[in-house]
Design a binder for these strands. Sequence first.
DNA 1: GCTTTTCCCATGGCATCCCATATTGGCCCA
DNA 2: TGGGCCAATATGGGATGCCATGGGAAAAGC
Lengths: 169, 169
Amino acid sequence: MNRFVSTFTNKIDAKGRVSIPAPFRAVLERDGYAHGSVGGVYCYPSLDAPALDAGGERLAKKIDGLLSGLPDYSDERDELSVALYGDVQVLSLDGDGRIGLPESLRAHAGLTTQVTFVGLGDKFQMWEPGRFAKRRERAREKVQHTRKLFSAGNRHASSEEGGDEGARG
Amino acid sequence: MNRFVSTFTNKIDAKGRVSIPAPFRAVLERDGYAHGSVGGVYCYPSLDAPALDAGGERLAKKIDGLLSGLPDYSDERDELSVALYGDVQVLSLDGDGRIGLPESLRAHAGLTTQVTFVGLGDKFQMWEPGRFAKRRERAREKVQHTRKLFSAGNRHASSEEGGDEGARG
DNA sequence: GCTTTTCCCATGGCATCCCATATTGGCCCA
DNA sequence: TGGGCCAATATGGGATGCCATGGGAAAAGC
């Protein structure tokens, strides 16, 4: 597997450590860790959500790609650079696949005792479980909405709602 | 055969495992498993039915297709990703063609002792047998209704209907 | 010297792997 | 055409390995 998928919830222990779900670790290994050697994960506060974004080498390349599209020394590029790179931390994995979460990152996501890992394909996010539940609910409604729009001009009365196209349903 | 067709009902054993019907396994093998290696099936809660959607690589590509239109790192994409990837589980098949159903998925579909597998072409659904029976009943009524309208000026209705069901156990 | 982090090991639960069995359906042969 | 043999499948159970989690000890930083 090459993508981060599904969600897992793990505990933060007394030392502030948390296990990266094994399937995600597997993806990171294939992807190439952030920092060549033993194991490192890029991690930064999500720009538009109370969560943390994280990933491996592919994520880093994507960020680079975004920036390379903007002219050097432009204000826009500087701002984006700061936003994207400024708060990035390289979290190293210990021998058991755990990372330690710095206080600044924990604060941004409101993490206290548990972390919900959410696979988003090229990256994954870390959420406080309660907040994530709400976010997921919103996301579902949105998908359902767009799906209705999508199938509105598309419906050939297939009798069963599950029989039509679209990813879900 | 390249599509999932007909329905089968199998048991959930004490460990929460259930056999994928052999014909569906055959389709998955041709389709390409979700996970290159031994066997993996994409599975997620249906948005608008108390059932689970599942499929192989083709289904995964469809999900990707929905996202590929959106720009990287947009809020919109993240939100959609949550709904599409976040709820997906990659269920691995054991050597005997069985999968284990996580509690969260079982809960959504109300699965307890048996699972009805329903082929829908590119994917298949997993239902609690009782709920599926009701759903199918409604679907038939609907079909008959539309057929009457349809065949009012155009009769070739073969009237053959109940020829499905490959249940066992 | 004290606190904080990193490494290593222990453990319990869960998931996976493997093997056994029975029942079904198909095939061959009489 | 009928009977019996064989292959495939679904299902059950035991064992084993992985993984998340906790804790102690060593190393590094303040």
